[in-house]
Structure formats: C-alpha cells, structure tokens
Design a protein around this nucleic acid. Structure first.
Lengths: 279, 279
DNA sequence: GAATGTGTGTACGATACCGCACAGATCCGT
DNA sequence: ACGGATCTGTGCGGTATCGTACACACATTC
C-alpha cells in the first residue's frame, strides 16, 4: 500500500487550469516532510515554496525567551513561503512540519517566473495569501478573547480539516507549544473534551469522536477562517479536478467550493473533511 | 495655517518612481478621514483603497458578543484595503479611523488596472502586504504572551510612529477597545506608565514624555514589526523623495530606509518619528 | 455656579492561566 | 522482565485580568 502522489492533491495546484498545471508540474519535486522538519527558519532566506499534500505545517513564532506560538497552519489547501512571491524573501516566523507527510517543492526561481506572468497561479497565490491573512488575524482575536478549551477545539478542527481520517498524532506538549500555553493547560482542556465524549486521548494520539460536538464547543474563530477559505478559494473542483483522473461524479461536480465530497473515490477529501454543521 | 497635501506624504506613494506616481496621481482623490469613520465594514464590498497621509486607521475585528480587537494599524506608511488587489474584495475585519486626518482615495478600478501592470506599484503593495502580515502575526503573539503594560507601550509606539508630534488624542475607553481589554485595565496600565514618567495623561490626550523609556518597557513585538517594515519598504528616500520638492540633503539621502531623518525640512518625518534607540 | 455628561481612578471578589513539583501510566530497548 | 524514557494527570499557591460597582474630576452648557 504505497499511495500514489499527484500535484493536484494540493488544492491550489488542483485549482490551476490544465495547461498551467502542466507547465508548473515540470518543476515540482515531490518531497517527504518528516515531523519536526523546519522548511524555513526565522529570517533565513527561503529558496522554495512548498505545496503540502498530506503533510501539515505550522507557522510558528519563537519569542526571545524561547516560548513559541503558532501563527497559522498550512495543509493541502495552501502553500508555505508566501514571502517569496510577496517580495520579502524572509519572514520572522518559522515553518515546522506538524504532521508528517508529503508535499511538492517548487523552486523560488520558477515560482517568480510564473508569478510575473500574472496568470491563474498569481491569482491563486494572492487569494490564498489573503486567506492566510485572515487566519492570522483570527488567531490574534482568539488569543485575546477565548478560553483554552475553545482554542483547543479550534486547533483540532483546523488540523482535522487538513488530514485524512480522524486521528492526529500529536503530544499535549506539542499542542501546548502551538497554542502558546502550558502543557498542563492542554492536559486539562483535553481532559474536558474527553469527558464530554468529543475526543479520545492516548499518548500522542488523538482520536476525534464527535466532530460536530467540537464545532459546537469552539469559538466563532474557526467558522470565520473556514468560511473565508471557502469563499476565497472556491474554484477548485471546477477547474482542476476533472482533468486529472478524478472522475467528476455527481457529488464532486456540484462543488464550486473547496468543500470536498465525502464519497470514496476521491483520493483526498480531507479539507474540509465534512460540511460544517453549525456555523 | 492650512497645511498643503501631497500624495507623497504617504510613503508607499512616495516610493513610486516619478512616472508611475504621476500616472497614479491623476486618479487619487484627497479625502478627509474623521475620527470614527469606517472605511469599510466587515464583509462589505470595498470600492477603493486609501493611502493615509496624516490619518491613522485601525483594522478591527468585532466579535459576535460585540467586543473588538485591533488586528493591525495603518498610517502613512501603508494602505487600507489590501483585499482589493489580493482578490478577495472583502475581509471579515473593519477599518476605522483611529486618529483623524487625511488620506488619498484610489478607486478599485484604477488600482486593479495598475496592479496588473506588474510594475513598481504592484511590487510595493505586495511588500507592504507582507509587512502587514507580520504585524498581524506579531499581534497574535503579543496577545498571547505579553502583559497589558507592555502591549500598551507597543500600541503607543505604533501610533506615535504614524503621527506628527508626541501627543495622541485618544480616550482610555477607545484604547481598551483596540487592545481588547477592559477600560479599567488601561487606566491601570496608563497609570503605571505615568508614574514612571513616560507619559502624561489627561482626559483623552496622551503626551509621550519619554519615548525611549517606552521602548525599553515594551515587548520585543514592537521592534520585530518595525524592523520588518523597515526591511520590506526601504526604498522610499531613494526613489520617491528627491523628485518631489523635498531636496535631497545629506541627512535624507543616506536613508535607504523608511527611517526618516529628523531634520526640519521634511514635511513629515513622522514614521518613524525617531530612530529606534534600543535593540 | 449649577447641572449634566464624559472621562478617569479605585476597590473587591471571581477566575483562568501560570510555574512548579511530583506521581502515575505507557512505551521501548535490552 | 526490567529500567529508562516519554507522556499524561493532579495538586497548590501565585498573579494578571475580568466583571461589577461606584466615586471623583473635568468640560460644556445653561
């Protein structure tokens, strides 16, 4: 069971028109992204962008005292390294693989060439960046106003949306680093969710039992971010999917939204894994 | 004493090469931006971008329960309405004038035309957007990790950098809304700063007495954001200033950085008002 | 100079999270 | 089976901020 890899497992790449994807694909290189690997460090010059397919990457900021906070999370809906096309070349934050998997590496040289064409790729990258902007803004909001319980729900949902299945491999210690809180705080919050029957925790594995329950318990921040991603990057199923070997069946063709169907034939219908229930 | 207004009072516009600024200026419209005016509301379609000259604008997010948080602050170093060229047209946040003044309005139609040219204006707008990204990220960090005292210092400094002079007109109530805390909390924090001799407070007027002291007392977030703005938008003095009636004197010509000189001839050397002392 | 409104200072219990310390539980290599 | 490492649970005092309530200071108007 060695799963095949395709560029269109990343939604941004999948959203490209056929000819653009073909041109771009020539320079994409499939890379493994092991847990903990840093795709770039604070202030270091970035040489390439990464389009995750099965990996999840956190954008982290590390403070002078060593503590850290997650600024945003990127999975197969996005790209790591926006500063390359935004023009800054570096950022003060780091990008660390939070969940091991694969992704496509695209050299900065080719990226910039493609970007200056002003075509669909530029358009997609900029819209994605706006979505990222929203995610960061909402992280700021959430950090200020919401309880750790709520933030943990939000974080679980954001991760879940970028994964296959309902299990995440992640210690409480790591989650604490992401959320910028104590490990004990996460233990307590996770305990609350577990008693409520929403998740099942065991030594670095979190099984989500009741996604709808999580959505009910989280703050508005999750929905705001998700809605904005859906709004800004809606064209995926229309433009990309049907051309590359995923047959357009009824459930998929009606998409017009990043929201994927849950039917079995889709190699990755993970982001988002399900329609949002509440709002 | 009616001060004259020029597009190049905004640093982004000032950074444009002569011919570009000339072309762009034709469609710029000077507008007054009174305190409290909303340049756009959450989710509403934006029709134009604004380049503040003397006004300061806050990007605010308002929660379902009515409380609000400032996501970022924009003055004469930037532009309001990035979603217009990023492609989203709207954002979940609002833009509210925090300090009355003037700015230039640029219709979305002309903006998009100019943007697609891929020239200096596109370049500048994207780099500015990256700086904005950093500011938002750092706001998230700060909200998580730093004390209200520190955050107030950061906020005062960010505002001060975008103003002429050392006095801000702003009630504690409003500051509390920006920082997303109670008004009483601001009273206490401001009291601390006042006892320390750093500021003087009186009924909606804050006079900054010791800027260096504020910088010493604030968290690293301020310096990170400022440094990133300086790094991303350094070319102002080189490209823009010398052509438009500000003579390039020794102190200004060596700039190569947004950091303006403090000599008297500069119409607005307010952002940043002074070299940062610490770090 | 009295009345009203707006802005600021203070007080006090409640609470969420912190920092630390340590115990129990599970996993892994030998 | 054992020992060590890693992960999770719990307890406790400390602290920053919250929510609420209210008194005071200053400005404007009549």
């Amino acid at each position: 069971m060695t799963p095949a890899h395709y560029p269109h497992q990343n939604y941004l790449l999948a959203a490209l028109p056929a000819e653009d994807l073909e041109r771009v694909s020539k320079n994409l290189k499939l890379v493994e992204l092991p847990l903990g690997e840093a795709l770039y460090e604070s202030g270091s010059r970035q040489r390439a962008v990464y389009f995750p397919t099965t990996a999840i990457v956190s954008l982290l900021y590390t403070l002078a005292d060593g503590s850290s906070v997650e600024i945003a999370v990127v999975g197969n809906e996005g790209v790591i390294g926006v500063s390359l096309f935004m023009g800054g070349e570096t950022t003060p934050s780091r990008a660390v693989v939070q969940s091991a998997g694969y992704g496509y590496r695209w050299s900065g040289k080719f990226l910039k060439e493609e970007f200056t064409l002003g075509g669909p790729m530029q358009h997609l990258l900029l819209r994605y960046t706006q979505a990222l902007l929203t995610q960061m803004a909402q992280t700021a909001v959430c950090n200020r106003h919401h309880s750790l319980d709520q933030q943990l729900c939000r974080w679980l949902l954001l991760s879940l949306d970028r994964l296959v299945g309902t299990e995440l491999v992640m210690t409480q210690e790591l989650i604490a680093n992401m959320l910028g809180v104590r490990r004990e705080g996460v233990t307590e919050a996770a305990g609350n969710l577990q008693s409520a029957g929403l998740i099942k925790y065991s030594r670095g594995r979190i099984k989500v039992l009741d996604r709808v329950g999580l959505e009910a318990r989280t703050c508005e921040c999750y929905a705001v971010v998700k809605k904005e991603f859906d709004r800004l990057l809606p064209a995926v199923a229309r433009t990309g999917f049907q051309r590359v070997d995923v047959r357009s069946s009824t459930c998929c063709s009606r998409a017009g939204s990043l929201r994927a169907c849950e039917c079995a034939h889709s190699r990755r219908a993970a982001w988002p894994a399900r329609p949002k229930s509440g709002t």
